[in-house]
């Protein structure tokens, strides 16, 4: 029993390390460009700032609305800034890339915008101050048809509403 259990664990560890190394190689190849991690955009080309050091947008993987570590970091900065500027309200715009059907992308953009909104709320920002809008794939920032362009377009952007 014990043996088989520990064996299974070892097996699991080996499997995991295989997956990790597979990911690692993938990352290093894309990191050569220095702009994507997995297929999430990590560059700064399109980023604007709500205030000094407060980026206005976070990026998502294909078909995902999960916030990356970097996105959470950005959103915490936004939350701090919103706390310091309590008279400012924001709109969080959710966007998708062009590689999906229009209606599904509208829903996906809404899901992304809400992922960002929810994170701001958990950092103490009142829901009343944040509205969301999804543009689906209707408002790309980069008009190219390649993986890097698409990664810049899969985003949620926090915009001052007043």
């Amino acid at each position: 029993m014990n043996f088989s259990k520990s064996f299974r664990n070892t097996f699991l560890v080996i499997l995991l390390s295989l997956i990790v190394s597979a990911c690692a190689t993938k990352k290093t190849t894309t990191k050569v460009e220095g702009q994507m991690q997995g297929d999430v955009y990590t560059g700064t080309d399109t980023v604007k700032y709500l205030a000094d050091g407060v980026p206005d947008r976070v990026f998502f993987a294909t078909n995902e609305s999960i916030l990356t570590t970097k996105s959470r970091d950005t959103l915490r900065k936004q939350a701090n800034w919103l706390r310091e500027n309590s008279s400012i309200n924001v709109v969080v715009e959710g966007h998708a890339d062009e590689r999906g059907t229009r209606e599904y992308n509208l829903a996906l953009g809404e899901r992304r915008a809400n992922a960002a909104k929810d994170y701001l709320i958990t950092y103490g920002i009142s829901a009343d101050r944040i509205s969301v809008i999804s543009y689906g794939k209707e408002r790309p920032v980069d008009s190219g048809s390649n993986p890097l362009s698409w990664s810049k377009n899969r985003r949620s952007v926090t915009v001052k509403a007043n």
């Binding site: 209606e103 509208l106 829903a107 809404e110 899901r111 809400n114 929810d118 999804s134």
Partner: peptide, 9 residues
């Protein structure tokens, strides 16, 4: 139609 609210359609 779809109605989207709080990230759910």
């Amino acid at each position: 139609m779809s109605f989207a609210k709080d990230g759910n359609s």
